[in-house]
């Protein structure tokens, strides 16, 4: 298992290097002159040149790259041009908001999709199987931003069941003491039930819109994978040995069927990281996605760079975690490496 961890870590390093190069190039090659934008419309050419020198944009690309990597190594992602704040701090304060939303959506999706998929496979052709098919078809045909808008319209505007889609917490509530950065966890830890429910109410709509989309591929893969495994020889052996149906379905079939589900889980998670950008915009969620969109609109390249880099590192870490999870479930992978 340690070998697996080390070998996967080694393969992750080139990915990180590639990401560093690409983020640097991307922001340099994008149209628009940050210096001109920052200086403002009325600025004189001298002022623009001054700002350019200050930002180090007058140097050659390799020089800029060396400076960039040096900054990265010292944990400096630059400052946002529009807020003047260090990008690292801004991302660090906003990341928990995105993470809480994404993880809540993913957990919700997993807790619905996997039992649904398993049941649909075990009781193939019954009503639960049809429910599964309807849910998965509906799920993939509804893009996240659409469900998000629809939910906000129906549950906030029409029914007024949900609070206004204006961020993580009602303005009248104060955020909980910072422990993990996750409002639900922090408020639960500090026993602040008012904030907990407030945060949950705000989280519900965006999390559900993201969960609806992501549970479709999960349920479909769980069902398909379970069906394939239930038809395999070793399940016949297990049944012929008289093992209890519960043992056959969970201990024997599900543990084997879970591997492709883990793959899809990784893909769904990556997708949710991207979908954050849309959902955060719809619900004014103060996460990194919204931050990146605003930065992109204003050609503020340091936050964009920081965002892409953060996301890329998350993707790599995610894939690493998925690989390790594989190793935990499947001894063949663990012992191969």
């Amino acid at each position: 298992m340690l070998n697996l961890l080390l070998s996967r870590l080694a393969t992750a390093i080139p990915s990180i290097v590639g990401v560093v190069v690409v983020t640097f190039m991307l922001t340099r090659l994008l149209p628009g002159d940050p210096a001109a934008y920052f200086a403002g419309l009325a600025a004189s050419p001298q002022a623009v040149a001054e700002i350019r020198t200050k930002l180090g944009l007058d140097k050659s690309l390799p020089e800029q790259f060396v400076a960039y990597v040096g900054d990265l190594l010292s944990g400096n992602l630059g400052n946002s041009l529009s807020t003047g704040q260090p990008v690292v701090t801004e991302i660090a304060t906003r990341l928990p908001a995105s993470a809480e939303l994404t993880l809540a959506a993913l957990l919700l999706a997993v807790f619905i999709a996997i039992p649904l998929g398993v049941l649909a496979a075990v009781k193939q052709g019954t009503w639960i199987d049809h429910v599964c098919r309807v849910v998965t078809t509906a799920g993939v045909s509804l893009p996240v931003f659409f469900t998000g808008l629809l939910f906000a319209y129906v549950f906030y505007y029409l029914l007024q069941w949900a609070p206004a889609p204006t961020g993580r917490l009602d303005v009248f509530l104060s955020p909980p003491q910072h422990i993990t950065g996750f409002y639900l966890i922090d408020s639960a830890l500090t026993g602040n039930s008012e904030t907990f429910w407030g945060a949950l109410r705000q989280l519900a709509l965006p999390a559900i819109s993201m969960a609806i989309f992501s549970l479709a591929p999960l349920a479909r893969m769980t069902r398909g994978s379970m069906l394939a495994v239930l038809g395999s020889d070793f399940i016949r052996t297990a049944r012929a040995s008289g093992l209890a149906p519960r043992t056959v379905v969970f201990t024997y079939a599900f543990r084997n069927a879970v591997l492709p589900v883990i793959t899809v889980l990784g893909m769904v998670f990556s997708f949710l990281l991207g979908a954050n950008v849309l959902v955060e915009t719809v619900f004014a969620w103060p996460g990194v996605g919204l931050y990146a969109v605003n930065a992109l609109i204003t050609s503020d390249y340091a936050p964009v760079q920081g965002f892409v880099l953060t996301m890329a590192v998350l993707y790599v870490a995610l894939n690493l975690a998925i690989d390790l999870l594989y190793g935990l479930v499947d001894p063949r992978i663990r012992l191969d490496s």
């Binding site: 020889d233 070793f234 052996t237 049944r239 012929a240 040995s241 008289g242 499947d330 063949r332």
Partner: peptide, 24 residues
């Protein structure tokens, strides 16, 4: 029947490598 299977009457199959649970 499940009570009887594996206790009173048992079965073995061809292709033993696929007839066993691969990850147990």
């Amino acid at each position: 029947l499940a009570e009887q299977r594996g206790r009173e009457l048992s079965m073995i199959f061809q292709n033993p490598r696929t007839a066993l649970n691969p990850i147990r």
